[in-house]
Simulated scan of single mutants.
Amino acid sequence: MSRLDSMLRRLTAQRDGLNWAAQEISLLTGDVLDLGLGNGRTYDHLREVMPERRIWVIDRVLQCHPSCVPPEENFLQGEAAPMLDRLAEGGHKLALAHYDLGFGIKEKDVAEAAKLSPVIARVMVPGGVIVSGQPLVGFKEIEGPKGIPEGRYMFYRAE
């Protein structure tokens, strides 16, 4: 498979997974988190499909497309664990989290996701959904939408 086809497959899976997750949480109360802003495409999509929800964004740096800059009060800049702690200490709870952090080195990415899993769990509402490009620990893995190749994206429910 070409890198272009692989990228298209990943982005389609991401979009379909987020759309599915938005429906899954429709009856839950809570905010949304985009963990890893990057260029801002996912954040832009989340605010389009869930305009009524507060969307928090955590990233080490703000370097997204100018049209995708989150409001200053919703952008937490820094390492993920302390920023997630800030959310928890502020009493914020999440119905949906999108995990898209990575260094580009699989072993390091998997270790980071495992390390952050308990901190993410602290801010999730019971029944909340996590859509992740990396395997997480301590959550109930659930089947996501049909058509997403196994292992491309993972879906979890908070307990």
Rank of each mutant, 00 (worst) to 15 (best):
D59G: 07
Y99M: 12
V69Q: 10
D85C: 13
C64T: 03
L62G: 07
Q134V: 14
G78D: 15
L101F: 04
L62D: 06
I55T: 06
R47I: 14
R53L: 01
E72Q: 14
L76I: 11
D85P: 07
S67L: 13
A111E: 03
R47N: 11
V131H: 05
K106F: 03
I58W: 10
P51Q: 04
S117V: 01
P82Q: 08
V123L: 07
G90Q: 14
I130Q: 05
L84I: 15
P135W: 04
V119I: 14
Q134M: 04
V123N: 12
L76A: 15
M50I: 02
W56V: 14
D85F: 08
R53Y: 12
E73H: 04
K108H: 10
P70V: 07
R122A: 08
S132F: 10
W56T: 11
A113W: 01
S67E: 13
H92K: 15
Y99K: 10
E73C: 00
V49L: 06
A97F: 10
A95K: 10
K115T: 00
G127N: 08
P126M: 02
L62N: 07
L46E: 02
G133I: 12
V49M: 07
G104I: 03
E72M: 14
R54W: 07
E73D: 07
A97C: 12
R53F: 12
P70I: 00
A114W: 09
K115E: 12
I120Q: 03
P118K: 05
V69R: 06
V49S: 06
S67I: 02
C64D: 00
G78I: 12
E72S: 15
G102V: 00
L62Y: 06
S132C: 11
P66R: 05
S117M: 01
Y99P: 08
S132Y: 05
G102E: 08
V125M: 04
R60Y: 02
A81T: 09
A114C: 03
H98L: 01
I120M: 13
I130L: 15
L87S: 13
E48M: 12
K108F: 10
P51T: 11
G91D: 07
K106G: 05
I120R: 04
P66W: 11
Q134P: 00
P70N: 08
V49F: 05
L76Y: 12
V129P: 01
K115M: 04
P70A: 08
P126C: 08
S132G: 05
S117R: 03
V129S: 00
V69L: 01
V61W: 06
L94M: 13
E89V: 15
D85M: 15
D109W: 00
I105N: 09
G90L: 11
M83W: 02
G91I: 11
D100K: 09
G90I: 05
M124I: 04
E107W: 09
L87K: 13
G104A: 02
V125I: 04
A81V: 06
E79I: 02
R47P: 09
